[in-house]
């Protein structure tokens, strides 16, 4: 997992990155989008198109965004609120459409 979407996306969710991703691994929640770490191919296509510079590699992520590394992964590895099963690796976001929920951390996230 290299690329992560951070706090800047919350409540902005421009979705330019979703169109850009060649493997369709960026999934849309309610307040922000999430990159599936197992499906991401590290190609960096998403990073420059984000209008709020929310996307970065783990190595380059702003320190305050550190929790979002876990949240991007958790969105897929743990059952989301209202769901019995985790999303896992569906192999593409388009078929699922917007997921419509966020991880509990993001649901209650307050911008500093």
């Amino acid at each position: 997992m290299t690329f992560v979407i951070g706090a800047a996306c919350v409540d902005v969710m421009d979705r330019a990155c979703v169109d850009e991703c060649p493997v369709d691994c960026i999934y849309v929640g309610e307040r922000m989008a999430y990159i599936n770490p197992d499906e991401c191919i590290d190609c960096s296509a998403c990073e420059p198109v984000c209008p709020v510079e929310a996307i970065a590699t783990v190595e380059e992520l702003a320190p305050e965004d550190a929790p979002f590394v876990t949240e991007n992964a958790r969105f897929f590895s743990e059952p989301l609120p209202g769901r019995a099963e985790p999303l896992g690796s569906p192999g593409g976001a388009a078929d699922l459409g917007p997921i419509g929920v966020d991880t509990p951390f993001v649901q209650s996230y307050l911008a500093p």
């Binding site: 850009e20 060649p22 191919i41 960096s44 296509a45």
Partner: peptide
Amino acid sequence: EVRWCPGCGDYAVLA
């Protein structure tokens, strides 16, 4: 360091 263009399909195959 991988040096293909951003979004290149080669990344998908590599992964």
